[in-house]
Computed example of a mutant assay.
Amino acid sequence: MSGAVDLNTHPGHLARRFQQAHSLLWGAMVSEETTSPQFAVVNALMEKPEIDQRTLSEHVHLDRSTIADLVARLARRGLLERVRDPNDGRRNVLRLTDEGARVHRKLVTRTARMNRVFLAPLDEMERETLLRLIARVTDAAEDLRA
């Protein structure tokens, strides 16, 4: 029988702990009502207004079923709406409502503050390195899935 492994050498275990820490801080410092993935959707629609769900899914790197659920929840809260594409009447695009834009403004400030707290143990160069490495690993994993 082999001995236990050091889970601190397992990226998946560390990623789960990282995500748990992020979720706790998000709930305490940003919002208990709007989740981080919901914020990603609202933020994407601020950046790229009137895109369809497929394009949104690609933009925020979430699968289509997750995007469909997030869009439905945000629409029920009155933060976004589906409208006919003025250039193609067969297609719907997504648009933030005034309330969605207001929530975005509020959350941008809070997320910036939370990120400073979350990454406070690192100096500026370490923060940049961490974010660059996480992006590289996740991009490569997404390429494998595709």
Rank of each mutant, 00 (worst) to 15 (best):
H59Q: 05
S65M: 06
S57K: 00
L56G: 10
L62I: 03
Q53N: 02
I51E: 10
D63N: 05
Q38Y: 04
N43G: 15
E50D: 15
Q53D: 01
Q53W: 00
A68I: 05
D52A: 06
L56P: 00
R64Q: 02
L62E: 00
N43P: 12
T66G: 06
A44Q: 07
A40K: 04
F39V: 14
E47V: 15
A40D: 07
F39A: 12
H59N: 05
T66K: 05
E47I: 14
E50P: 13
M46H: 15
R54E: 13
L45E: 02
N43V: 04
P37A: 00
L56R: 07
D63K: 04
P49A: 03
D63C: 04
K48E: 14
D52K: 07
N43H: 15
E50Y: 12
K48N: 14
E50A: 14
D63A: 01
Q53C: 02
D52I: 01
F39D: 13
Q53G: 05
D63F: 08
S65N: 11
S65Y: 11
P37M: 10
S65Q: 11
F39C: 12
S36E: 15
I51N: 11
E58H: 04
A68E: 04
H59P: 05
P37Q: 11
E50R: 15
E47R: 15
S36F: 12
A40Y: 07
A68R: 09
V60K: 10
I67S: 09
I51Y: 07
E47L: 14
K48Y: 14
H59T: 06
V60T: 00
P37C: 01
E58K: 01
P49C: 02
Q38T: 01
L45M: 11
I51C: 10
S36D: 12
H61C: 07
V60M: 10
I51W: 07
L45H: 03
Q38W: 09
A44F: 00
L45V: 02
T55C: 08
D52G: 11
Q53L: 06
N43C: 13
A40T: 04
S36K: 13
V41M: 03
V41A: 13
I67R: 03
V42K: 06
L62D: 02
D52P: 01
T66L: 07
M46P: 12
I67M: 09
Q38K: 06
T55S: 14
D52W: 03
P37L: 07
A44S: 12
T55W: 10
L62Q: 10
Q38G: 04
L56M: 02
A68N: 05
T55Y: 07
K48G: 06
S36L: 09
S65T: 02
N43T: 12
Q53P: 00
A40I: 03
A40W: 03
A40E: 08
Q38C: 03
P37K: 10
